[in-house]
Design a binder for these strands. Structure first.
Length: 260
DNA sequence: ATGACCATGTCGCATGGA
C-alpha cells in the first residue's frame, strides 16, 4: 500500500493538484489535513470520479481532516479516547479522523498549532498530544500486532535541524522542549517515527519571505507507526516538487510504501 | 527559475496559520 499524508491548506482550492498528485504518485490512501470546509462543501464527486472513496470530518473553515482511499475505507472515528475539547461552548475540533484501509488503521491528524508559548492554545496542544499518546498506547497494548499509522501535521519540529535557523525560533512554539518531549513520548508506548530514517527534507515552507526559494523550511509532518507497520515500511519520500508551481499548499506530501 | 503570504467568510477587514 502506498500511504501518503498531506496538509492541503484548503481542499477546495487544491483539489486539482491533489488529484494530479494521486495519479502521478500512485497513492492508494491519502490522509489530508486542513481541508478548511464543511462536509457538504467537500469535493466528493471529483475524488469519486478518480476512483477514491473519501471520509471527511469538517465543521467550518477551520481545521478539517479527511482520508481518501482506493483500497476500501471503514470503521470511522472522529475522535480518540480522551481527546480534549476547545472553544466556547467547548466542543471537539475537526483534527482527528481514524479509518481502516486494507487492514491498516490510519489516523489523519492535525495537531493544534499552539500559537505562542503558554497561550491556552499551547496548553491545549500539549494536552491533545498527551491524550493521543495515551489512546494510541492502549490500542497497541490490546493488540501488539495491530497495523496503525498516525500520520499528519504534528506542528512540532522535533530536532534543531528540522528548522532552517534555530535563532529565528527562539522562544517560539514548535521547537520548545515540552512540545518535543510530547512528540518523542510516542516512542515510549511502542510507536516509531518512520520517515526520518528514510529521508532528510523539510515538509513545510512559509508562503512569506521567499522561504521556499531560499529553502528556509520546517519538518513538521511525520508518521508514527506501530511495530508491524515499521517492519513493513519499504520506502519514504517527501514530495518537495509539490511546493512548486501554481497555487501550492505550504506543505508537501509525505509518502510511505508499505509491504502487504 | 522554486520569487517577495494565503485561505476563510464576507465585501473592508478579521482570524488563523507556524
Amino acid at each position: 500500500m502506498r500511504l501518503a499524508t498531506w496538509n492541503v491548506n484548503s481542499i477546495r482550492t487544491r483539489v486539482d493538484r491533489v488529484l494530479a498528485f494521486l495519479e502521478r504518485s500512485g497513492t492508494d490512501v491519502l490522509a489530508m489535513q486542513e481541508t478548511k470546509c464543511r462536509e457538504d462543501q467537500f469535493p466528493h464527486l471529483a475524488f469519486q470520479a478518480a476512483g477514491y472513496e473519501v471520509v471527511h470530518h469538517g465543521f467550518n473553515q477551520w481545521n478539517g481532516v479527511a482520508v481518501a482511499s482506493r483500497v476500501g475505507i471503514s470503521d470511522v472515528e472522529t475522535a480518540f479516547e480522551g481527546m480534549p475539547t476547545w472553544g466556547d461552548p467547548a466542543g471537539a475540533e475537526a483534527r482527528a479522523l481514524g479509518v481502516t484501509c486494507d487492514g491498516v488503521r490510519v489516523w489523519s491528524l492535525y495537531v493544534p498549532n499552539g500559537r505562542v508559548l503558554h497561550d491556552p492554545h499551547y496548553e491545549y496542544k500539549l494536552q491533545w498530544l498527551g491524550a493521543l499518546r495515551e489512546a494510541a498506547g492502549t490500542w497497541l497494548r490490546s493488540d501488539p500486532d495491530a497495523r496503525i499509522a498516525l500520520v499528519g501535521d504534528w506542528n512540532i519540529a522535533p530536532r534543531d535541524e528540522d528548522v532552517w535557523d534555530m535563532s529565528v525560533f527562539a522562544g517560539a512554539t514548535h521547537v520548545s522542549p515540552p512540545e518535543r518531549e510530547a512528540f518523542r513520548a510516542f516512542e515510549d508506548v511502542g510507536f516509531t517515527e518512520v520517515t526520518r530514517s528514510y529521508v532528510d527534507q523539510y515538509t513545510y515552507w512559509d508562503y512569506q519571505r521567499l522561504r521556499f526559494p531560499r529553502n528556509e523550511g520546517m519538518r513538521i509532518d511525520f508518521a508514527y507507526v506501530s511495530p508491524v507497520v515499521a517492519k513493513r515500511t519499504d520506502a519514504v519520500s517527501i514530495e518537495r516538487d509539490e511546493r512548486k508551481g501554481k497555487a501550492p499548499s505550504d506543505h508537501v506530501p509525505v509518502v510511505l510504501d508499505l509491504a502487504d
